[in-house]
Simulated assay, not measured.
Amino acid sequence: MTVAIVALAALVTGGYIYKDAIQSRIARTVAVVSGQEIKPLLDSESRYIRQIVAKDNSTSRTIMWQSDSSEPDAVIAYRLVGSDDIKTLSATDTAFTDDGSTTYIHEGTITDLTPDTKYEYRVGYSTDRRSDWYSLETSGAGEYEVLIYPDSQSGDYSGWEQIVKNSAKRNPHASRSISICL
Rank of each mutant, 00 (worst) to 15 (best):
E120G: 02
C181K: 07
D85V: 06
T92S: 08
D56N: 09
Q51I: 10
T97W: 01
I76E: 02
D99V: 03
A141G: 09
H106R: 03
S131A: 02
A168D: 14
Y149A: 13
A31P: 06
P172G: 06
S135C: 03
S152H: 05
I5A: 11
I17C: 11
V53A: 07
L182S: 11
L8M: 04
P40W: 08
V146Y: 02
E145D: 14
L136M: 01
R170N: 14
R176F: 08
Y157V: 08
K39C: 13
G124H: 01
L41F: 04
I178E: 03
V53F: 01
D132P: 01
G155P: 09
S60W: 01
L136E: 00
Q51M: 10
T103S: 15
Y18D: 15
S70Y: 13
I22C: 09
T103Q: 06
K165E: 15
T103Y: 05
V81E: 09
W65Q: 04
S58M: 08
R176W: 04
K55N: 04
K19F: 15
A91F: 10
R79W: 11
T127Q: 10
R122T: 01
E107C: 02
I22K: 13
T88A: 00
A54Y: 05
D43C: 11
L136S: 01
I148H: 12
S179A: 15
S69A: 12
V75P: 02
D93C: 10
K55A: 12
S101E: 09
T117A: 02
I26W: 09
A168T: 09
E161R: 12
Y157H: 10
D73P: 07
A9G: 10
S175Q: 07
P40C: 13
V32T: 15
H106G: 00
T111Y: 13
S67F: 00
R47W: 04
K165S: 12
V123Q: 01
S167G: 05
T59F: 05
A54H: 06
S152N: 08
H173Y: 12
Y104P: 02
Y144G: 08
G140I: 05
Q162R: 14
V3N: 13
S69Y: 12
L147N: 11
A54S: 13
V75Q: 10
A91E: 09
E71K: 12
L182G: 04
I26H: 11
L41T: 00
D112M: 07
G142I: 05
S70P: 09
T94W: 01
